[in-house]
Design a protein around this nucleic acid. Structure first.
Lengths: 199, 199
DNA sequence: GACTTTATAGACCGATCGGTCCAATGATGA
DNA sequence: TCATCATTGGACCGATCGGTCTATAAAGTC
């Protein structure tokens, strides 16, 4: 109900943290973005760090929802599902003029050493994403798109890392090419291994 | 000669930026770490951002030297060379109690959208790293450790991204396991593809 | 309608931010 | 010996930082 103000603060902060980083965003910036006042802010949150925790949780929910929608898309094979995910990410990078990045990864990079509560939330979110990738891989293996003898858990972790790194590169090069590279990378190592054994 | 003070500023800033980020490090922090004074700082650098550029260049030189030493190690095959690189990175993470990360990647994540000069320097450094990985891959292909039909340039970019991502994960999980995962990932996709086709 | 709780506005706080300025000091060469 | 110029120390600047406080307004509750 009266969560509207609290939600507005979290949403505005999530956007600003993603584009200007946590430390680069002042409490006043968030107030300006929401039209609320300081009294309101500190009524809902005891500190900026506490808001950071709420932001981390919200970003986790959002990213998880987006990844699930792509990676578990009905009537689609593994390569197509991955393409869906990467296209969505690429579109988001272009839309923000390459100022964004992974909502979890960027926060993690900055806050892991600064706030242990936030670090823990983000670590949890990343585990969920890896699990999602692992399930995508296993589905692909069942469908025959990915060789069944490959270790899904290791590959999932490696693939998650590759996507994170591609986002850093995308931001630095101001290009979506690194995200396409991931697709080619998978085509060469995961899918093509399969194609190389046609019998 | 009298570059000592300038060098001290760059080195101290490089260390602090890596652990506390650029925006989390005040000019006064750097002065405290070096024992120098504000007059000295602004004699050598017109602004904090200008120091940031110098730091980016220095980190590029350092990382490039380390990667070259590992990936072009004499009398070593591709898997061993990669292991050398990843072990070095893992050791550095543990030594800093997981507060560090890739000197280029962390700066890039934070500064790419904030300072175009710094962004450009880091983009350049990343290109060099990718070229280094590509050469490592081609050497491995010549030595027969990696299937010759794989596209070295695409794999190099993907692998670079995976290492970056593993560093984010390592920092967030406070563990070196993600770096070991990269090794297993390569073993499963690059090296083992080869082993899977024994004939 | 009286009373309590929740929510909001915004003045204010000390600390710190990046940056300026100038006087003092060091070294160099004529 | 003197002039020159690179280097350093540190007081100082306005702006902003995260956070506190009090007064008020709105929303329930009986």
């Amino acid at each position: 109900m009266n969560e509207t103000s609290r939600d507005k603060l979290i949403d505005a902060a999530a956007l600003l943290f993603l584009r200007q980083s946590y430390q680069g965003t002042g409490v006043e910036d968030i107030l300006r973005a929401t039209g609320l006042s300081k009294g309101s802010f500190y009524h809902f949150f005891p500190s900026k760090e506490s808001l950071g925790e709420a932001v981390a949780r919200r970003q986790q929910d959002r990213v998880l929802a987006r990844w699930t929608a792509s990676l578990q898309k009905e009537n689609a094979h593994a390569p197509e599902r991955l393409a869906l995910l990467l296209d969505g990410i690429a579109a988001r990078m272009e839309k923000t003029d390459f100022a964004a990045g992974c909502p979890l990864g960027t926060l993690a990079q900055e806050m892991a050493a600064l706030s242990d509560p936030i670090r823990a939330i983000l670590a949890d979110g990343m585990t969920h994403l890896e699990k999602l990738l692992e399930r995508w891989l296993r589905d692909g293996q069942e469908q025959g798109d990915i060789p069944a003898d490959l270790p899904a858990d290791t590959l999932a972790r490696g693939l998650w890392a590759a996507i994170q790194g591609a986002l850093i590169m995308s931001k630095t090069r101001r290009s979506t090419a690194p995200l396409d590279d991931i697709r080619h990378f998978c085509a060469a190592t995961l899918f093509s291994c399969n194609a190389a054994r046609p019998d």
